[in-house]
Write a protein that binds this DNA or RNA. Structure first.
Lengths: 210, 210, 210, 210
DNA sequence: TGGTAAACGAGACGGTACGTCCCGTCTTAGA
DNA sequence: TCTAAGACGGGACGTACCGTCTCGTTTACCA
């Protein structure tokens, strides 16, 4: 799944096979993909400052104007690349057991943030968002909000199963579970091993599980 | 008021009183201060991207070379301005009671991060650090390390007083106490009211206090 | 008469009234006219550099491709507009008297070059022709050659009437009569009043008339 | 020595030998010369449209900003290059005989306009001046006015010697002598051989010499 | 009378050059 | 010896047009 920006495949569709080059009835999917790939690669290879519109255009074999036509700035390109890359949705699996659910989910989250290319893009975007309120808003809408929904899922299911009290402040619980992970990733730069996430889960269960 | 960080006149001294413009006897304190003020103001007024060496120089009435002579880059200027401004050291007071110590300290930390000008500078630097490993390292050395030391203080004192077990993993405890705060500040952008920090403390005490 | 590019009304004809939009049997006269008008207006309003294919297309309500389909470049559009506008052919009248013929003809030529809109287009084209040999060649073929033929007419008639010697170098004579006029128009920018052209005629007659 | 445009060697001077790179007390003569040379060469090699600020900068090994700092546009660069190149001032020699003076002078003028590199630059500038009133004005001030003064010199000397009447309209005479030459150069594109200029002189003498 | 082919509007595309901003380096004259 | 001033080579910015290329529609002719 990709391209909520494409305006719904309707526009970007290539009807009869055969690559098209863009016209009034739709943009070039080929160019779009080349731009996102180039941006991604540049970020990984050269860091955030190494991502420039000119560099993306050159590497993607695309005209600068084509980038400006569809994205307001380089962070928007990276944002799209990020959304695009987040194929694996980090949706928590269900094991019928809160402890297992949380341990697996937080471990995956930590890996995503610290090990994956997408995680690198996220860290760059989160950094930029500190001095770019618009990006901050969009990041929250397009990623963090959805991610938080996924983070809450194991807890809600446990409430339904009766493992957790219906009175639990779910939002606060999420803050306490994932907060320390993001803190290590964005602030201290310490690694986030399973031991760390498992301990978070352990203490959470100690406090809240029957 | 500023400049407890000047290194104790040693560097910036002006011997005979009277403003000087820099000479064989040392750098101009006047120029140094003007640069830091200008950087600070520009950050507040125009955001991180609005802070440029040329802009600082123009506003400070200083030559670019003077900036390059003393600071390697604009983030170093901001770093100095940040350290300079951090007058209140966020050193936790001692009330002889862990709960009180933690509640007051986390509340102050939250206020610092979300309300103060220095906090704004910190957020900008933390953002930049996501794509600037040198800055990240320096930020950890010059601020975060010291801040973490201060964050541990209440816990260490409680251990000494016997309020906490000597087996406590202090680092993990700090992560769980301040992590959610930084998470809100840097990631979700949610406010961090006393209710939030107080709850963090409450749950920590539930888990660890005798 | 207009439009050697139209290939003779044969192609462009719209038989039964009613606007058409072009089809396999002919181009749209409407579009052609809109393009020439737009080019003309843009030249007068914004100067040569202000005439762009995109600008013409936008103002004419025509697609760029329609322009490129029929004209190789913007100077060709202007060339057509120029030819189109040159309704009055500057054909010298015959008064049976060389002096009168020349005075009237040179006066008209001067007025055309300095006062008329067509003259402005000509000056622009002549300017461009200095760095565009193709345009220069075409300007000579389509305008200057014909104009020179007209310029020679009074002299040839005077030779026939016996007012001028059959040995006269007619080309050199034309150079000397119109050269100073174009010199003022294109080089010095001085006005070209009747007194100036009359003096040219007077001196020419002094030298060559019996 | 060159460069009346340098603002008088005062600014551009390099005092103690040793190339300098420009500073508050003067611009870089080295850069200035490289720009003018590059512009000149590009014009000759690739024509007027082939002269671009980027091209000049690249060939001269100079930053675009350095060009924009000192010249408003590419035609100003070419103008300077033209003035610079016009080392040979086309000042008419004095033979004590009007016929000889004029024949030699007009022959040199024709050669300059049709054969020399500077002549090519002049034609390009004259062309551009047709759609650039500012350039037209500057061309008249900095070149044509001075050239006309030189063109008048043989006539004024002949008046003093008594070869021509003091009542002669010198300006009109110049128009008639050089007008046909510029006409051929800028309008018809015909060559301007000595036979042509000699005939101009012959007819002028027939009319005006005692 | 319906198929079809040319011309049309629209506009996306890969490009080039524009003129501007800021970078970090350098050279100077004055205090 | 430090400063203010500012010219320099460089790189990226965002914009304007270039000339080419589909698209889907309109329209007149001919089968």
């Amino acid at each position: 799944m990709r391209g909520h920006l494409t305006g719904g495949g309707a526009r970007g569709d290539v009807r009869g096979g055969g690559v098209h080059h863009g016209n009034r009835h739709g943009r070039s999917e080929q160019a779009r993909q080349a731009v996102l790939d180039a941006a991604d690669n540049l970020l990984v290879e050269r860091g955030f400052a190494g991502v420039t519109i000119e560099g993306i255009a050159a590497r993607a074999g695309v005209a600068k104007q084509t980038i400006y036509r569809w994205w307001p700035s380089k962070v928007d390109v990276l944002m799209d690349a990020f959304i695009e890359d987040m194929a694996q949705e980090l949706t928590p699996a269900e094991h019928g057991d809160l402890g297992a659910d949380l341990r697996v989910h937080l471990g995956k989250l930590a890996d995503f943030l610290t090990q994956s290319d997408s995680g690198a893009v996220f860290r760059a975007l989160a950094g930029q968002a500190q001095h770019d309120p618009d990006l901050a808003a969009r990041l929250r809408t397009d990623y963090l909000g959805r991610q938080r929904d996924r983070d809450r899922l194991p807890l809600l299911r446990a409430v339904e199963r009766g493992e957790l009290s219906p009175d639990l402040d779910v939002d606060a619980a999420v803050d306490q579970l994932v907060g320390p992970i993001y803190y290590r990733v964005l602030v201290t730069g310490d690694p986030v091993p399973p031991a760390f996430t498992d301990q978070l889960v352990h203490q959470f269960l100690t406090l809240h599980a029957h």
